[in-house]
């Protein structure tokens, strides 16, 4: 069962544009704009991902996700039903991006993301 009504900006019709804008902004944050960003820190601590620098891998994944969203023909609510393969691929690429940032990057940074400020051991 598909739920095209669940896309962002269903009535406004800007679904794809909003997703791409979101991804681009996040990528800019990752790169620190023109200054020092997470990518520089990852390179500084020599964070690797299967033999390549993790920062490159994450940058590439940003591009893969953006390209995958752009590759969806027509508008998103329609694509969810008629061009499911492309829509599904865009979802998958974004999901991989989440894993790279939330798991691989945060693990390499060694930051304990301690939401509740609880003790650990």
């Amino acid at each position: 069962m598909r739920y095209p009504g669940k896309v962002e900006s269903f009535y406004g019709g800007h679904s794809k544009a909003l997703i791409v804008a979101n991804l681009k902004a996040l990528k800019r944050l990752f790169q620190g704009g023109n200054g020092i960003g997470f990518d520089d820190y990852l390179n500084d601590i020599n964070a690797e991902f299967n033999g390549t620098p993790l920062a490159n891998e994450i940058n590439d994944q940003f591009d893969r996700a953006i390209n995958a969203v752009n590759a969806i023909p027509g508008d998103l609510p329609q694509a969810v039903t008629t061009n499911f393969t492309e829509a599904d691929n865009a979802f998958l690429q974004c999901k991989i991006l989440v894993v790279r940032l939330k798991v691989d990057m945060s693990s390499q940074l060694g930051v304990s993301i301690n939401y509740a400020d609880n003790d650990g051991d």
């Binding site: 999901k95 894993v99 939330k102 798991v103 945060s106 693990s107 993301i113």
Partner: peptide, 12 residues
């Protein structure tokens, strides 16, 4: 077993 591993994940 204290302070033995760096483990992070996300589950959907």
């Amino acid at each position: 077993r204290v302070m033995l591993m760096e483990k992070a994940g996300t589950c959907t």
